[in-house]
Design a protein around this nucleic acid. Structure first.
Length: 800
DNA sequence: ACGGGTAAAAC
DNA sequence: GTTTTACC
């Protein structure tokens, strides 16, 4: 006998996700054909606040949706967005389909792309949304009137409308930010667990006593926000584990609960890092290690992401900052504890400074997202954009679509027309190319039936404009602090605006639309080509175009920057409505090397290198320096200097006149050692120097770890993977780096200069043959390198 | 849990 | 020559 939907619902918790015990939604059949879904009552437990669920702003028992299931399906799925994952809810017509639904949903394949056979619900109705309820933190803070750091009243956080009034309400309230005091040293001085036992014994106190004191301090200070550098991968799991070992309950939540933790991962461009997220009830945990990496995704300028390197980079390391070698910590604690405390306190100060510099935009984002501060700091832009869309759909009582299968086909237009040493140079770019296209050409995913996407984009643009204006006004009146706040605010809008194009092509985005993504890029290509034509028809010689920016030599009658600006403005005025070209800089000279690879010489004499083949951070440092200095000589057309540079490096390599960091390489590990072993075993990958090194040295490797190594020994055998050594092993007194190997590397770096010289000239410059003294006499630099197909075609085109 | 295009490095 | 990685 086939049971009805109502039977099924009444006898089973109809809906379940991947984590069945976290089932959050109840439902019942309203009539023969409709099903209603409610939020379920009574699921909040002591440590589990509702902030984790996408519906935390719904009251218990609120009607979430009502829809008509399709006739002929055994079961179907709804994809609901969670804070850091998606939850699939299955609805099935009869009990006999229960197993199939469970298996499907629990199988790995129950992901965004495979729900072809399972139609999404089409109509959802009558949702009682209770806004302003907020998560547990908000509730707590609203009750107690406590404020969050930077003087922001917390209750403002969850007024989630996108309107100017809410955003620009004057901020008030006192900060309850935690004072940095010596007592916090306890937390950071744990950064070396090897020293821990000694620390305890040296002071005659047990680890247990210290942990109890630590928990008491957290309770007493009662922080809203806890910031730490690598806090998710070290401090919190470490403390948690030590508490367990000592039989102490790690009750650091505001409600005295033990933090909930679960595995999570975060992506920074091509790298992804696994970590354990700690949800401390009533508090927001911010990892500054993530903040600096996120910062560097676009800047690509940081030498390292460790606290000390980051602090130096941001200029927040104080002059007499105490540095301590990990290996010396235990001894130091016994012999000079004051110094160790000072060191630890410096760690705290630097973390605090970095957090305040980088967390502004995340903080303001909490005002427009249904996510708290901690979540906003670790989620990627796609999750945030989708949250904005989903929120509007819930508000409008409309069902959600599912992602479409497929892929994007086009990208930005990139071409180099001229190569060589060229100048003078003007750089112009289309302001916010993709967002402008999306606004002007009314880009909207087809699944977005309510046309929310363009609305959000327009709202964000207006808000950003207003915030920028405010920042400017406040800065004029010397209200630096307030101006900085508006600056952070506009930055948070900018991040979301710029990510909206990417969301269209995101495979797991429920509102994705590859055709629209393609429409954005192909329109961008047309605009780029039009821009080229307009500059050329005004006598400019275009050197390179990359997506939205153009480098060109203006016609000779244009000399001053004012004239250059008016040329750019003139071209801008003939571009399509809503597309503006901005003047973004002028340069004395440039070396156009390859697509996306060039050197710019500013009028003040500084030089800027761009492109992976010129600034790659994965290569040896000496190579980078050699190329940088060599390009400078090239720009100055100093052939003798170029030769001297080469000879100097060659001498230094031969005489070991350098330091390990000049020739060591840093690589990040993508898998564990076990995974590597299995892959090598099965022939999926071949041996690599870093893993072999780690195995030999017994170093534990986790995904995302970085190893700095160099090649030792002698000879030029093809495989160096057994000759790797950790950078720390190198000793200046007994240098053992492979001289032949690094000489070969130098010659490889020298190859970059081949296009600028005749072959025999190149050989003469990059040789240290001392039999004949080198003379630059008769050597010509090739200023215009020509061989490009696109180049000749293009010149034909404009000569007509 | 943003994208495509590109070149170099690693195998 | 192909795959992987890192850069814009």
């Amino acid at each position: 006998m086939t049971s009805t939907i109502l039977d099924t619902i009444q006898h089973n918790p109809l809906l379940f996700g991947k984590d069945t015990e976290e089932c959050i939604v109840g439902a019942h059949q309203q009539s023969d054909s409709t099903v209603r879904i409610y939020t379920r009552k009574g699921l909040s437990t002591e440590s589990r606040d509702e902030a984790f669920y996408p519906y935390f702003f719904l009251s218990d028992g609120a009607l979430l949706s009502e829809f008509t299931p399709p006739e002929n399906e055994k079961f179907w799925l709804i994809k609901l967005q969670g804070s850091n994952y998606y939850r699939y809810l299955a609805i099935f017509r009869s009990w006999s389909n229960y197993r199939a639904a469970v298996e499907h949903i629990q199988s790995k394949s129950a992901r965004a792309n495979d729900t072809d056979e399972i139609p999404a619900p089409s109509v959802a109705q009558k949702t009682h949304l209770l806004y302003n309820k907020g998560d547990a933190v908000t509730q707590f803070l609203m009750q107690t009137g406590k404020t969050m750091f930077k003087g922001m009243v917390f209750e403002d956080l969850y007024r989630m409308q996108l309107d100017i009034e809410t955003y620009f309400k004057p901020e008030s309230g006192k900060s309850s930010k935690v004072e940095i005091g010596k007592d916090q040293v306890i937390i950071v001085s744990l950064s070396d667990n090897r020293g821990w036992e000694k620390v305890i014994h040296a002071h005659g106190r047990t680890e247990k006593e210290l942990l109890i004191e630590l928990i008491a301090i957290i309770r007493e200070k009662d922080p809203d926000v806890i910031e730490g550098h690598n806090i998710f991968r070290f401090d919190l799991p470490y403390l948690h584990r030590r508490c367990e070992i000592n039989g102490i309950e790690f009750r650091i939540g505001r409600d005295q609960s033990i933090p909930r933790n679960y595995p999570a991962s975060i992506r920074f461009a091509e790298r992804s890092i696994d970590y354990t997220f700690y949800d401390i009830a009533g508090r927001h945990v911010i990892d500054t290690w993530f903040l600096v990496q996120s910062f560097d995704v676009s800047k690509r300028a940081m030498p390292g992401y460790g606290l000390k390197a980051a602090a130096k980079f941001f200029g927040v390391a104080r002059e007499n900052r105490v540095y301590v070698d990990y290996a010396d910590m235990a001894d130091l604690w016994e012999n000079n504890p004051e110094k160790l405390l000072e060191y630890a306190l410096d760690d705290v100060r630097e973390t605090r400074e970095i957090a305040s510099m980088l967390s502004g935009s995340n903080y303001y984002m909490t005002k427009m997202m249904p996510y708290g501060y901690a979540q906003c700091s670790r989620l990627g832009p796609a999750a945030k954009i989708e949250a904005l869309l989903v929120r509007e759909y819930l508000k409008e009582k409309h069902s959600l679509p599912r992602p479409e299968n497929g892929q994007q086909h086009s990208g930005g237009y990139t071409e180099v027309f001229l190569q060589g040493i060229l100048g003078p140079i003007v750089y112009a770019d289309v302001e916010s190319l993709y967002p402008s296209i999306m606004l002007s050409y009314k880009i909207c995913p087809k699944s977005d039936e309510r046309k929310i996407f363009p609305q959000i984009l327009t709202n964000l643009k207006d808000l950003r404009f207003a915030a920028k204006k405010k920042a400017k006004e406040e800065r004029k009146q010397d209200n630096i602090q307030v101006a900085d706040n508006f600056e952070a605010m506009q930055a948070s809008f900018k991040i979301v605006i710029n990510a909206m194009y990417g969301y269209l092509g995101f495979s797991a985005g429920i509102f994705n639309d590859y055709e629209e993504a393609d429409r954005v890029t192909t329109t961008g290509q047309d605009i780029a080509r039009q821009m080229i034509r307009e500059f050329e028809s005004r006598g400019s010689r275009v050197i390179e175009v990359d997506t939205d920016g153009i480098l060109f030599m203006p016609p000779s009658h244009i000399q001053s920057s004012e004239e250059e600006i008016s040329l750019v403005n003139e071209v801008s005025s003939v571009m399509p409505e809503g597309i503006n070209i901005g003047y973004d800089g002028r340069y004395r000279k440039m070396i156009s090397y390859l697509k996306k690879n060039y050197a710019l010489l500013h009028y003040d004499g500084t030089m800027q290198l761009k492109g992976s083949s010129l600034v790659s951070r994965s290569g040896e440092k000496f190579g980078r320096e050699f190329i940088r200095d060599g390009f400078r000589q090239l720009l100055e057309e100093d052939i003798q200097g170029l030769h001297d540079l080469y000879v100097t490096w060659k001498e230094r390599i031969i005489h070991h006149d350098w330091n390990v960091l000049d020739f060591a390489k840093t690589e990040s590990m993508k898998s564990s050692i076990d995974q590597y072993r299995a892959d090598v075993e099965s022939g999926k990958r071949s041996r690599t120097i870093t893993y072999e090194l780690a195995i030999r040295k017994g170093i534990d490797v986790n995904k995302g770890d970085r190893i700095t190594y160099y090649v030792s020994g002698s000879g030029m055998q093809s495989n160096h993977y057994e000759k790797g050594k950790i950078a720390e092993e190198w000793d200046k007194n007994t240098p053992d780096e492979n001289t032949q190997f690094y000489l070969k590397r130098l010659d490889e770096f020298a190859q970059k200069f081949i296009p600028f010289f005749k072959p025999q000239d190149f050989s003469a410059i990059f040789s240290s043959d001392t039999l004949f003294s080198f003379s630059p006499e008769g050597i010509e630099i090739i200023r215009e390198i020509r061989n490009k197909e696109a180049n000749s075609q293009h010149e034909e085109e404009i000569s007509f």
